[in-house]
C-alpha cells in the first residue's frame, strides 16, 4: 500500500500537470482564433513553390472527367492535363493530393495543399474562403431524367424526387434560386449523394426521378450508361457556372502567374486542344 503522503504528492503533481495542459491548449486555441477565421497560412508561398519546383494540388480523385484515376491508378483528366501543362511552363512539378471534397477549403487554408483545381466552380460562398483564378471553363447545371418519365422542363418535376451531390455547386444554386427548380420538387428537398455514380444508380432504380448535375459530368455519365438513349438531359434556368482554380487569398503571385499562363493557353490554342481531348464526344 502507498502511504497517504505519497498519494497526496502524486495526486497534486498529476492534477497540476493536467491543469497546465488544459491551460496550454486553451491559450493555443485562443491564439488561432485571433488569426482571421481559421486561416493558418497568411504568407505568400510563391517563393517556396518556385524554390521546391513543386506545387501540391488537391483533387477528389473520383471526379470524372475533370480529375480521376485510370485503371492503373494513374491520376488523369481535363484539369489534370491542364494544370500539369500550366505549371510545366513555369518549371514546376504538380504533386496531386487526393482529398475529401467536403474538406477542400480546410485543406487549402491549413496549408496541406496549395490549390484546388478540380472542376471547382466559382460561388459567392466559396469566394469568402478562397481566391479564385480567372475562369477557364464554363458549364451549367442540367437535369437528367429517364426518357420514359417524360420530364422535359424543370416544371415537370412537380412533386417528384430530386437528387444531387452534397456540397456541389449545383446544390448551392438549387437552394439559392428556389424559383428555378426547388419550388417544384417533392417537399422542396433534395437527396444528397456523395458521388454521382450512386445517384445514377438510384435514378435507374426509380428511387429518384431527376438528378441535378453539372453538364460535363452529365454527358460523361450518360455516355457510359448501357443505354444512353434512355435518358433526357434538360437545360433549365440555372446560370452558367464558371470553373476556376482556388488559391489561398495570400498567394497573390501564384494566382497571377496561373492567370497569365491560362490566358496564354487560350490565345495559342493549347487550351482547346486539351478541351477537345476530354469533352468532345
Amino acid at each position: 500500500m502507498v502511504s497517504m503522503k505519497k498519494k497526496i504528492i502524486v495526486n497534486t503533481i498529476v492534477g497540476l500537470l493536467f491543469i497546465g495542459v488544459v491551460a496550454w491548449i486553451s491559450v493555443a486555441l485562443n491564439s488561432t482564433a485571433k488569426q482571421s477565421n481559421q486561416t493558418t497560412i497568411q504568407t505568400d508561398e510563391w517563393q517556396r513553390i518556385k524554390q521546391d519546383k513543386q506545387i501540391t494540388i488537391g483533387l477528389d480523385d473520383t471526379f470524372v472527367p475533370m480529375g480521376f484515376r485510370d485503371k492503373n491508378g494513374k491520376i488523369i483528366g481535363f484539369d489534370v492535363d491542364l494544370a500539369n501543362a500550366v505549371f510545366k511552363t513555369m518549371g514546376i512539378q504538380v504533386k496531386w493530393q487526393p482529398i475529401d471534397w467536403s474538406m477542400k477549403e480546410t485543406e487549402l487554408n491549413t496549408g496541406n495543399i496549395d490549390a484546388i483545381w478540380n472542376g471547382y466552380t466559382k460561388t459567392a460562398a466559396r469566394a469568402k474562403k478562397v481566391a479564385f483564378s480567372n475562369s477557364y471553363h464554363k458549364a451549367t447545371q442540367v437535369l437528367v431524367t429517364l426518357k420514359k418519365n417524360n420530364i422535359n422542363r424543370f416544371s415537370d418535376m412537380q412533386g417528384k424526387v430530386l437528387g444531387d451531390q452534397t456540397a456541389s455547386s449545383g446544390d448551392e444554386s438549387f437552394n439559392k434560386y428556389p424559383n428555378i427548380l426547388k419550388k417544384y420538387v417533392k417537399d422542396q428537398k433534395v437527396i444528397g449523394y456523395d458521388t454521382f455514380d450512386k445517384a445514377f444508380n438510384d435514378l435507374n432504380a426509380g428511387r429518384i426521378d431527376g438528378l441535378l448535375i453539372d453538364e460535363d459530368y452529365a454527358r460523361y455519365y450518360v455516355a457510359h450508361q448501357a443505354n444512353p438513349q434512355n435518358y433526357t438531359v434538360t437545360v433549365g434556368g440555372f446560370s452558367v457556372d464558371e470553373t476556376a482554380v482556388g488559391f489561398r487569398k495570400s498567394d497573390k503571385q501564384l494566382r497571377q502567374a496561373v492567370n497569365e499562363t491560362l490566358a496564354k493557353f487560350k490565345e495559342d490554342g493549347r487550351m482547346s486542344l486539351i478541351e477537345d481531348k476530354w469533352f468532345s464526344n
Binding site: D61, F68, Q97, P98, I99, D100, M103
Partner: peptide
C-alpha cells in the same frame, strides 16, 4: 478517406464512378 488517404474502399469508389 476523410483525410484523403486512398484505401481499398476509396479505390473501389473511384473505379465505380469512372466506369459507372
Amino acid at each position: 478517406y476523410v483525410i484523403g488517404l486512398g484505401d481499398i474502399l476509396r479505390a473501389g469508389n473511384i473505379a465505380a464512378s469512372r466506369d459507372v
